[in-house]
């Protein structure tokens, strides 16, 4: 804390006012929508004021449906191209339901981008493993696209992806392209599939022993439900990947996205500002505690 004698609240307040209102959103127009799966929709949005939003892979925005509410949603678009703001949203409740129902032309409000990024470029010169479950592929997609823009700078790259059923697999065409043309080992597994499903059934963690990477020289980016991320981190540690090279994207209730509302706290961390992407080294002691 600043010592009391030095403290100048008027100066701090003036500075804060000049910096602008982080709680005030900008209007965005839905330009295109794409039904990805039964319950998941990708929205492409353009700013009404025309100024595009720059972001790092892994960051999220606070996306607001007028009169309904505002929720944190990761950006799922390509960080290397200036273009429309892209969000891939799974309908699980009132706000996400209103967002997936937004037709082209609908005005939504956006704040952000907020939070830390994946920093996938730290994996240059080494191997990169992406591990994800369910909607978790959407927040990872920008990091995958960023890597692909410089594919030759990375060694082995693998994407392990677990979906509930074959019908829930997101970005299917893209997954095939990444595997066939861009030299990514893509392994998909489902919790359960019909008889016609010829792929794998089981947990995504079970894929970890199947792929080749140099543990000491690997960056692993993991996004999914917390239990799944813990299990993956444990398996990666088991194969010798340092905890500092394992990055997870944490989910917590968020009402502001900028460190003010207190909702996202995990002991000393504000997940919205210190995260959502954090190393397993930082998270391990906090994730193993009940209801922290």
């Amino acid at each position: 804390m600043t010592s009391l004698a030095e403290h100048d609240h008027a100066d701090a307040a003036a500075h804060a006012l000049a910096a602008g209102d982080a709680m005030l959103p900008r209007p965005y127009r839905v330009v295109r929508t794409r039904q990805d799966t039964r319950d998941t929709v990708t929205l492409q949005l353009e700013p009404v004021d025309g100024v595009p939003l720059k972001f790092s892979a892994g960051q999220f925005t606070m996306l607001h449906a007028f009169g309904v509410g505002e929720v944190p949603i990761s950006i799922s678009g390509d960080p290397t191209k200036e273009g429309l703001l892209e969000h891939t949203i799974r309908n699980v409740g009132s706000v996400s339901g209103a967002l997936v129902a937004a037709a082209p032309g609908t005005i939504l409000a956006v704040r952000g981008p907020f939070g830390t990024g994946w920093d996938v470029s730290d994996g240059m010169g080494g191997d990169v493993v992406f591990i994800t479950g369910g909607i978790g592929l959407a927040p990872l997609r920008p990091a995958i696209l960023e890597l692909l823009a410089n594919r030759e700078k990375y060694n082995r790259v693998a994407l392990l992806y677990g979906a509930r059923t074959p019908d829930d697999i997101l970005f299917g065409d893209e997954l095939r392209k990444w595997a066939d043309l861009l030299g990514i080992v893509v392994e998909v597994t489902v919790d359960s599939g019909p008889h016609s499903w010829r792929g794998r059934v089981g947990l995504v963690t079970q894929l970890i022993p199947r792929i080749a990477f140099d543990p000491a020289n690997t960056v692993a980016l993991v996004c999914g439900p917390e239990v799944m991320m813990r299990a993956c981190a444990t398996a990666l540690r088991g194969r010798g990947v340092p905890a500092a090279s394992i990055r997870l994207s944490m989910e917590r209730n968020m009402k502001c996205g900028v460190g003010l509302c207190g909702h996202c706290q995990l002991r000393e961390l504000f997940i919205c500002v210190d995260g959502p992407v954090l190393t397993y080294e930082r998270l391990a002691p906090l994730m193993s505690r009940w209801e922290l």
Partner: peptide, 25 residues
């Protein structure tokens, strides 16, 4: 109050309503 100054004014983002009221207090 000084803690609120630190939390609400001096971090990543500020509460501008608090800032406006506090600047004048």
């Amino acid at each position: 109050i000084l803690m609120h100054d630190q939390i609400l004014l001096e971090r990543t983002a500020a509460d501008v309503h608090y800032a406006a009221r506090r600047a004048e207090s």
